[in-house]
Write a protein that binds this DNA or RNA. Sequence first.
DNA 1: TCTGGGGTCCTCTGCCCT
DNA 2: TCTGAGGGCAGAGGACCC
Length: 420
Amino acid sequence: MTAENSLSGSGKARSGAILHVDMDAFFVSVEHIRRPELKGLPVAVGGPGSRGVVASASYEARAYGVHSAMPSRRARQLCPDIVFLPGDHELYSEVSRRIMGILRSFTPLVEPLSVDEAFLDVSGARRPPVEIGHLIRRQVDSEEGISCAVGVAAVKFLAKLGSKLAKPEPTPSGPSGGAGVFEVPVGEERGFLAPRPVSDIWGVGPATLGHLNRIGITTIGELAELPLEHLEQVVGKAHGRHLHSLANAIDPRPVVPETAAKSMSREETFARDLHTHEDLGAELAALSDSVASRLRSAGVAGRTVTVKVRFGDFSTITRSHTLASAVDSGVVLAREAKQLLNEVDVAPGVRLIGVGVSELEDSGQRQLALDLGEESAADPSWQDVDQAIDRIRDRFGAGAIRTGGTANPNTGATGWNRPR
DNA sequence: TCTGGGGTCCTCTGCCCT
DNA sequence: TCTGAGGGCAGAGGACCC
């Protein structure tokens, strides 16, 4: 379709005003800045252990078939020379904040999707969207040394697909080609989508793809022609309506800057399976402490506590409980989580455990509830303890203090996580 | 091949209430 | 008093995303 040089200035097609900006191999690109000697080498950021996976791979590594979410062991088989880096998520978050700042200098309507991508609504801008895309690429590259791809379209889904098509190809010597900016012109959306595979639709993963393939649907064009009622029977009502709209290039979702988080969680995979409530309880306490700390720094508290347990055979269960009032205390959260865990038979062996909190609300509301004397799972006496813990961590670092029962039981946790 | 971590949204089921 | 229908809600799990 159209690319960097073929569209701009043609004046033949109207431009959509949604941009999707996606960093190229973000974690690896950040590592390249502080370790330039790694440029040109196959590099992966991720968990190097036997149960680790790749979070980000350089284009040189991708040429060997390495990709994100691939088990690290498999990545080493495909590319024995690959350099594994453990990752520095504080640094990635810091770079991400600066890049989002650059994007906000073009429009206040920036919706971050993750650390390395965002939607922008530039409908109010004087410059053409494609030109803004090029300016963004130049500025992110000159100020942060990171390359990115930009998709331009009238709707989010197509802009996202555009950025994917603007990316370079992986080769053993690094990224090659790639338009950098890819536009789907207004009025040409359906023709553009029709021949593309249904897996290009945002929301079609392996399970949905299997369902669609079984009824003979392989392209977006075929999906667009399928009667809605039939599609709803195959993939469910809400999902069916959503996919049908996207296949017809209909995506009314606006760009929403800064949406509040709806849940917070932490989970940990162990190097070896754990079989006792005692071992798991200690790990649960540490995770609860971490989640509670994040809740407090975000100024929120949550009512629903969920414990996630993944067994050695990879089967996964969750147990949740909704409290009378919201909590943000690590001790209270750990107590609830352990009660939930007690309902689970852990003897078969647990490889992963997680703690999550949802039904989040502003901490100010919760304080008001406490002041009014409502029944609460959050014991106010713990608030002083939590505040003291936060002050110590602010001053001496996150590892300066642990709450009781969170001492590392030598569980061999992978220690790998990818912060949002 | 053997699958991390942190999220969101949806569906299904069972329970309670009217 | 019993029973069934239907709505609302909580809990569990699946699918998907990066």
